[in-house]
Each structure stands twice: as structure tokens, then as C-alpha cells.
Amino acid sequence: MSFDKIRDPRKIRHQIGDMECDYIYTAGVAGERFYIALRDEEKLLATRCEKCNITFMPPRLYCDNCFTELASFMEVPSKGVIESYTITYFDRDGQALPEPEILAFVKIDKTDGGLIHRIGEIKPESLKIGSKVTAVFEAKKERKGALTDIKYFKPA
């Protein structure tokens, strides 16, 4: 082959850039119901498919098993069980966090799903898979209609 040899990598030219756009995502129809209930009423809403016996948390507009539309939303307890957890010492850009954070998958009671969220008011060494936890909400005026309207889950 006749490819030229590059002996000095600095001679390889580069173009610097990004792929930046700004995005505004809608929560969708089911998402909107969920986040408004969270913000305005401190409630977790789920959807339920009677036919398949599945309660969706977070709620979905349709059952992805039998593929029917799910029109009714039901309130479920804002508590659950730690199914798994991890302790993170770095942020997403690789910077050390001042305090380690506990992140868990919390299976929400009376549903077949759950939420990924922070765990608070507990020392990492006391954590157990299977522990019961309950949601701690932000003050009403701080709530924005997002998952962060729950500050964290704490031991029940």
C-alpha cells in the first residue's frame, strides 16, 4: 500500500468541535400525570394491566406485554424495598464527590416496578438489600414536577 508514514503524531491535523444542541423533552402523556401528582400531591401514580396482572411503576400508557392502552391511574404507597444499591464516590465527569452517595433501585410497594433514587439518613455500612425505605419529598415550593421532587428515600 502506498499510505504515507506519519512519524510525528503532532503532524496529524485535527478539527475540534462538538455535537451540541439544546433539548427540551416532553414527559409524555403518562409521564405528565406521574410528575404532576408527584409535584402537587406527593403521590406516586401507577398504571395497572388487569389482564396481565402487572402494575407499572413508573406508569406507562400501555402494557408492553399485551399491548393495550392503560387509561386508569392509581395511587400507590411512596415507599418500597431496596432491591439493589451502589455507593458512588465520583460524579459523572470523574470528579471526586465530597460525600459518597448511595444510589438504589427501590421496588415500590404494590407495584411490579420501582425507581432509581438516592438513599439518605443512613450510613453506608448499615445498608441492606431488602431494607424498607420511604420517600422524603422536597418542600412544596421547591418541587418542579421531576423525580428530584423526592429528595431521597430514607429507612422506614
Binding site: T26, G31, Y62
Partner: peptide, 16 residues
């Protein structure tokens, strides 16, 4: 130009 439904929800409606 803009629909409130998420991409998943739009896919569901068309597929269904």
C-alpha cells in the same frame, strides 16, 4: 410540529 406524547407513546399508538 410538536406532540406532547413521548416517542414510545407515539410508537405505541401507530403500532397498536
Amino acid at each position: 410540529r410538536r406532540l406532547k406524547e413521548s416517542g414510545k407513546e407515539l410508537s405505541f399508538y401507530a403500532a397498536n
